[in-house]
Every structure is written in C-alpha cells, then in structure tokens.
C-alpha cells in the first residue's frame, strides 16, 4: 500500500514538475513575443524626406522609416505601384504631409487608424497656389501647381508643428518610449526653431526686397518670413524657353527683382540668361527628397546661408 502511495506521489510530483516546465516555457515564449514586439522598431512609411528626417530624429533606433520614392523623382507627383501601396498599408504608421502633398494619397486606400496627417493641426493656415498653367518636367508628364500649396515645412515653425505631430503619433504607438521620444523631439524642435529665428533675423533687414521664385513651391517660406516673391515655372536643369523669358520680363516690369530662388543649382545657360537681365541666382532647396549629401537640417542651414546675400 505504501509503495503504491509513494508511486502515486512520485507520479504527481513528476506531473507537477512537467507542468511547471511547460508553464515556464510558455511564459518565456509569451514574454519573448511581447518583448520582441515592443523592442522591434516601428515600421513607418512616409511621403517625403522631411517627415523621414523628423521620424528618425524623434524615434532613433526605435523606428525603421521607409521612404520608397526614388531619389530623382519629385515625391509630390510620384505614384506608387500596387506592391508599394501594400507596403504602406502594412506599416505601423503612415506619416502624411497633408495640404494636398503626394497626390496619390487621395486615390488609394490607406488605414486611417495608422495614418497621421502631420499638418492637420494647422489646416486653417493652409495656403493656395493661384497659378493653373500646366507644364512638364522632361518626360514625366504635364502637371499644374493648383490648389493647396504643399511645402509646409519651409515655414520652419510649421515644420516644428509637424514634428510634434510625429512625436505624438510615436508616443501613442510606443508609450513606454515616450520620454526618449520627448527628449529627441525637444532637441529637434530647438534645432528647427533656431533655424526659424535665423531666417527671420536674416530677412528682417530688407524683407521687402523683390525676388523671383523659379517654381511655385515657396508659398510657406514667403508667407512665414514675409518675403516679397513672385513665381515662374523654370526648371534648374532646363534651359529657359523664349516664352519663359518673355513671361519673366513681364513679371519684372511690375516686380523689379534682382534675385531668383532656385530649387536646385541651375544650369549655366540659365544663370547667364538671368545675368543679362540683371538677376542673380540663389538656391533654396525645399528638400522634399533625400539630399545627395547632408541631412534636412544641414540643407536648410545651407539654404539660409544662400539667402543671406539677398538681404545684406
């Protein structure tokens, strides 16, 4: 009888140990799975480079930011393939610029619960482009700059607000990392607002000086810093046509500018043409796509340095 009792106890002890082992394993698997979900970087898809920069600055190693637009394509007019739309749909977060930026967004299905319109908070400050003339950039097809202006980040105080929206979205997704995100965001905000103050101090001397914008993409820069600019449709990599020169001459009659602001370094023939008209060239890169060198901040710092001669 005793032998039987011992045997039963041994069996039950064995079962208990096995159960403990199984429970321990399951706990490890569960903790491992939870930890790996919490530790794995957030998969973020963005529609332009400034948002990529903001997300990477704020998220640090806790985010993996994908910006699938090729380097030589303007993200505003880029259209993703179905597979790329699928990748956006699968992302943990989709950061949109808003204000009509990235036209394709209005024609695809994206999960709103994971999509953040970073400029929605200041939608009452959206600007519009008046020009409705169509034009083309090489073989990329005709387009028109009509409707809302979209390069919101060129007003760096608005860029700081967009960065704040990115911070809010990241903090909601990963509340455990909120303090890290907050510290990174404050550092980024400080950089953006310092630059914002610098532009204001640069332009404050002569902000009424007339200038020409080579493309209608500087509305927020002009509005934010009170610049006196008029837009034409010149491409930095294309020689201006006689029609474009006539158009510029007409503009100059009412708007005697001595500077033209370009999106990128213009070709020599264009600058020579402008020189004959008494116009000098300066580059202010909107930085919508990944710059060949440096980052968003360094490009903006260079832009401000390029503006300095105009307002001296």
């Amino acid at each position: 009888m005793n032998l039987l009792l011992d045997f039963t106890q041994e069996i039950s002890m064995f079962h208990r140990q096995s159960l403990h082992r199984v429970a321990l394993c399951m706990a490890f698997v569960f903790i491992g799975a939870t930890a790996s979900t919490a530790d794995s970087p957030l998969n973020i898809y963005v529609v332009n480079y400034p948002l990529k920069y903001f997300a990477e600055r704020i998220g640090g190693p806790h985010v993996k930011v994908t910006f699938p637009v090729p380097a030589d394509v303007d993200p505003v007019y880029w259209t993703p393939e179905v597979a790329e739309i699928g990748a956006y749909q699968q992302a943990d977060l989709i950061l949109l610029n808003g204000a009509g930026y990235a036209k394709w967004v209005g024609k695809v299905s994206l999960p709103r619960s994971r999509t953040i319109d970073t400029s929605r908070e200041f939608k009452d400050r959206y600007l519009t482009v008046k020009e409705t003339m169509t034009h083309s950039h090489g073989a990329k097809g005709k387009h028109a700059h009509e409707g809302p202006a979209f390069t919101t980040w060129l007003d760096l105080s608005l860029a700081a607000k967009q960065a704040e929206a990115v911070f809010g979205a990241l903090a909601r997704k990963r509340p455990q990392q909120k303090d890290t995100f907050m510290a990174n965001f404050l550092s980024l905000k400080n950089d953006l607002l310092t630059l914002d103050s610098r532009i204001k101090s640069v332009v404050s001397n002569r902000n009424t000086v007339p200038m020409i914008f080579s493309h209608p993409v500087y509305e927020y820069l002009a509005k934010g810093y009170g610049l006196n600019g008029r837009s034409v449709h010149w491409e930095p990599d294309q020689e201006p046509s006689p029609g474009q020169i006539t158009e510029l001459s007409n503009v100059l009659e009412m708007h005697p500018a001595q500077w033209m602001i370009w999106e990128g370094p213009p070709i020599t023939s264009a600058t020579e043409n402008l020189k004959t008209m008494g116009i000098r060239s300066a580059v202010f890169d909107p930085c919508g796509n990944v710059p060949p060198e440096g980052d968003f901040l360094s490009v903006m710092q260079r832009n401000v340095s390029n503006l300095e001669p105009i307002f001296r």
Partner: peptide
C-alpha cells in the same frame, strides 16, 4: 487576391 489598393477596385 489582395486587399483594396487604388480607386475603382
């Protein structure tokens, strides 16, 4: 197939 992606699907 696949989920919805673009307008008209």
């Amino acid at each position: 197939g696949r989920p919805l992606a673009v307008l008209g699907e």
